[in-house]
């Protein structure tokens, strides 16, 4: 009997060990935590491989878990203007509530290359207020490698098809390009010195252009004289604007007077008189011209010192003698009457 009981104890002990291992494993797997949590709602266009029960980590430390994932198209992302497709409920431990701020980033990433995906939180700066309970935020989805690969494959396929269909054309292009490059290389080698000179000239040209630009700027842009000129032009234009109205009025009056004159002079008789007068004026002008020519020749003689007046004006010695004589006559007026 005692032996049978011993047998049962041994079997019971083995079962107990297995149950303890299994129970511990299940408790660990369920992520049993006695910490109080609060919910946050994160919207994603596509959360990738994020699953219910996935960890929520901040700086690598687990601070909660994703409790619910579901479709929700009512929320519109203010940045993209598109409605998000997935709403995830994340339960975060209450002790981290003050760390997660309103400018925090929520993104999906994975543990290593093959690891499962989890929700990571970049807590944000202390400048903003903490994100409270039941807050709704927009998350950043994981990079769409599948989409990238699909599009890359399509591009590659199109490129390959293009190459395959235009094999001869591409061959010709390659041959021509090769010939062109060879020719270009030969030309460059043959004209190396000339090209160097061209480059040097171009460099000096650009240097001169720079200097010219600087001078032009100094003289015509930064120059105060130019500014003054502009001011004067502005002042002038303002004056013109101010005087334009009275000037126009005067011009109108003048035109009216001219009209009246022309109406007065509009008769044929008066026109003949005017013509005659003008002819007389022309004759008078020709005479005046000849008189002026005579006067000019006289002045030319004088300038040359010819004649009495010319000698008096142009000869300095005579001028000095005359001055001496006048001075002498001033001091000795009796010489008017008596010659020594």
């Amino acid at each position: 009997m005692a032996q049978e009981r011993s047998l049962e104890v041994k079997v019971g002990a083995l079962i107990l060990v297995a149950v303890l291992i299994l129970g511990g494993f299940i408790v660990m797997m369920g992520g049993l935590s006695l910490e109080k949590t609060y919910p946050l709602y994160v919207y994603f266009d596509n959360p990738g491989g994020l699953q219910t029960g996935a960890a929520v980590k901040m700086a690598g430390i687990k601070i909660g878990s994703v409790k619910e994932l579901g479709f929700n198209t009512s929320h519109v992302n203010p940045k993209t203007g598109k409605s998000s497709l997935i709403k995830a409920r994340a339960n975060i431990e209450v002790k981290y509530r003050d760390i997660i701020r309103k400018d925090a980033d929520f993104y999906v990433t994975s543990q290593g290359v093959l690891g499962e995906q989890f929700l990571a939180i970049d807590p944000g700066t202390g400048a903003t207020a903490p994100l409270g309970e039941n807050a709704e935020v927009d998350g950043i989805g994981p990079p769409r490698l599948d989409l990238f690969l699909a599009k890359s494959y399509e591009l590659l396929d199109t490129t390959l098809a293009g190459i395959r269909n235009n094999r001869e054309l591409l061959g010709d292009i390659m041959t021509n390009t090769s010939g062109l490059l060879k020719g270009l290389n030969g030309t460059v080698t043959e004209n190396r010195d000339r090209i160097n000179r061209i480059v040097q000239n171009f460099e000096s040209l650009s240097q001169e252009a720079l200097t010219l630009t600087q001078n032009a700027r100094r003289n015509y842009v930064d120059n105060p004289k130019m500014l003054r000129t502009i001011d004067n032009v502005e002042h002038l234009s303002s004056e013109v604007r101010r005087d334009a109205t009275p000037m126009l009025k005067d011009a109108k009056d003048m035109l009216a007077n001219l009209n009246r004159i022309s109406a007065t002079v509009g008769d044929q008789k008066e026109i003949d008189k005017l013509r005659k007068t003008l002819e007389e004026v022309a004759q008078l002008a020709s005479r005046a011209n000849s008189i002026a020519g005579d006067a000019q020749s006289i002045v030319g003689h004088i300038k040359k010192g010819k004649g009495t007046v010319g000698a008096l004006v142009m000869d300095e010695e005579m001028y000095d003698d005359m001055q001496e004589m006048v001075r002498d006559l001033k001091h000795n007026p009796w010489k008017f009457l008596w010659k020594e």
């Binding site: 049978e4 047998l7 049962e8 041994k10 079997v11 083995l14 079962i15």
Partner: peptide
Amino acid sequence: RGAVAAEAFEIGNRSL
């Protein structure tokens, strides 16, 4: 009585 325990011991404990 005890048959299952004896078999359990034979299958379990002795195979452990």
